[in-house]
């Protein structure tokens, strides 16, 4: 296990390095730069600014300098705000993650419960209802759902205030974020639960005299969760980093919207920082998924 983890970490470092390389040169290949504004700025000022951010140096040299600073824990300074990126990024991330964590927990808990209910009531009313709503939930794009929620509950019914930093109400954005993964987990759980309930070892458990509840929640569910875990791991990482769509519609200043803004303003250091940060999160999430997977399914060999 320890050997496996160290191997994975090594691999992760290599992939992170490749990601920095690709991102750095790709973003520089796009025409324009941080200080190419429509309105004419004094060339002297631009020159001064570019010197400050090392933009006057050759690309290779710029990359070398960036990586050197990064390895020393310096994530750079935003060309837009002129402030150090790390603190701002963590602050935005905590907003997105707070939102995402709530959504993920709701999606996992309700997804598994609803999936189990659907499986145990196959072809009966609860199953039909659940399948109807999960089909809807997986088919509706998040921008449609978020807009609908905002329109109906905030603007028409006035049940929730429009999100603002002074008056943060997470309910609607959390719902908008949770619906898709919840619907997906529900369907996944249902399928794998039905599959598990048909297995020979379930018959064995019943034949031993195990109670119906224990057969379902110990013998079947444990097996049924194996495929769910593979989905949940990356889903959590994805949802924690914030959805630009949902954040933009509810005007929440999270990491998702930071990322979008940084691209449109060619804020090179911020683009780099956010990309690397997100990639790191993904790597950690995948590693954790593998470890949990191994804990739940002893047949898996990690090597």
């Amino acid at each position: 296990m320890a050997k496996y983890i160290s191997k994975r970490i090594l691999l992760a470092i290599v992939s992170l390095w490749i990601i920095t390389l690709i991102t750095f040169f790709a973003m520089n290949a796009i025409p324009g730069g941080p200080f190419n504004k429509e309105k004419a700025t004094d060339p002297a000022v631009i020159q001064q600014l570019e010197a400050r951010y090392n933009l006057d140096k050759p690309l290779g040299e710029q990359y070398r300098l960036y990586m050197k600073n990064l390895l020393h824990g310096d994530w750079g300074i935003s060309t837009k705000s002129g402030r150090p990126i790390w603190n701002d990024m963590i602050e935005k991330f905590s907003v997105s993650a707070g939102l995402g964590l709530r959504a993920a927990v709701i999606a996992i808990i309700f997804g598994i419960i609803l999936g189990a209910i659907a499986a145990l009531n196959r072809n009966k009313l609860p199953d039909r209802l659940i399948i109807f709503f999960t089909t809807l939930g997986t088919a509706m794009p998040s921008f449609v759902l978020a807009t609908l929620l905002l329109l109906v509950f905030c603007l028409k019914l006035g049940l929730f205030p429009v999100f603002s930093s002074e008056n943060p109400n997470y309910t609607l954005p959390v719902i908008a974020l949770a619906v898709y993964p919840m619907a997906y987990i529900t369907r996944l759980t249902k399928t794998s639960m039905l599959d598990a309930l048909n297995q020979d070892y379930i018959r064995t458990a019943r034949a031993k005299g195990v109670s119906r509840t224990k057969v379902i929640f110990v013998h079947a569910l444990r097996n049924a969760l194996i495929p769910v875990i593979t989905y949940v791991g990356p889903m959590v990482a994805y949802i924690l980093t914030g959805s630009m769509v949902v954040e933009n519609i509810f005007t929440i200043g999270g990491l998702g919207s930071t990322f979008v803004t940084s691209i449109s303003t060619r804020d090179y250091p911020t683009i780099m920082a956010v990309t690397i940060f997100l990639a790191m999160l993904m790597v950690v999430a995948n590693l954790l998924t593998d470890i949990v997977y191994k804990l739940v399914d002893p047949r898996i060999k990690l090597d």
Binding site: Y201, T204, H219, R222, P298, R299
Partner: peptide, 14 residues
């Protein structure tokens, strides 16, 4: 008690 045909699938793998 009962024992089944296929011992490969009759025990819970987890």
């Amino acid at each position: 008690s009962i024992i089944f045909q296929d011992p490969m699938t009759s025990l819970n793998p987890v």
